[in-house]
């Protein structure tokens, strides 16, 4: 494997896992449920997307021919993450979870 490709893979993996960490930190330290929802839906999805992209490059450089099937995992995550976030937000709205007082605008009943 050429050095530059290895460097690209390393950068993708590190950036990806750092983004996933940011998502987890957001989940851990933000004050209410609706703000916590932001970390996992965006940061974690992109983070894992980066890791999977790195893995795709790695396996493409290993064997003969490309290895594109990791794209499926990435595509699936990007399609499903908003859906599960939306469902959870609806459930939280229905349970009337508390929001921090600074929040402007009112959630629906």
């Amino acid at each position: 494997m050429p050095l530059w490709l290895e460097a690209v893979i390393c950068v993708l993996l590190v950036l990806g896992s750092l983004f996933a960490l940011v998502g987890a930190i957001g989940l851990y330290r933000l004050p209410d449920f609706f703000t916590r929802l932001h970390g996992p839906t965006k940061a974690t999805t992109l983070g894992v997307g980066g890791v999977v992209l790195g893995s795709m490059l790695f396996f493409s450089s290993q064997g003969e021919g490309g290895s594109l099937h990791e794209i499926l995992v990435m595509l699936f995550l990007f399609i499903t993450a908003p859906v599960s976030a939306h469902m959870l937000a609806k459930a939280a709205l229905q349970e009337r979870l508390p929001v921090i007082p600074k929040t402007r605008g009112k959630p629906w009943d």
Binding site: A20, L27, T44, G47, V52, A81, L88
Partner: peptide
């Protein structure tokens, strides 16, 4: 919902 969200994030991290 917080717990479900934590589990959701957890499986995505496990996948990575």
């Amino acid at each position: 919902p917080d717990r479900v969200l934590a589990l959701d994030t957890f499986y995505i991290n496990a996948l990575a």
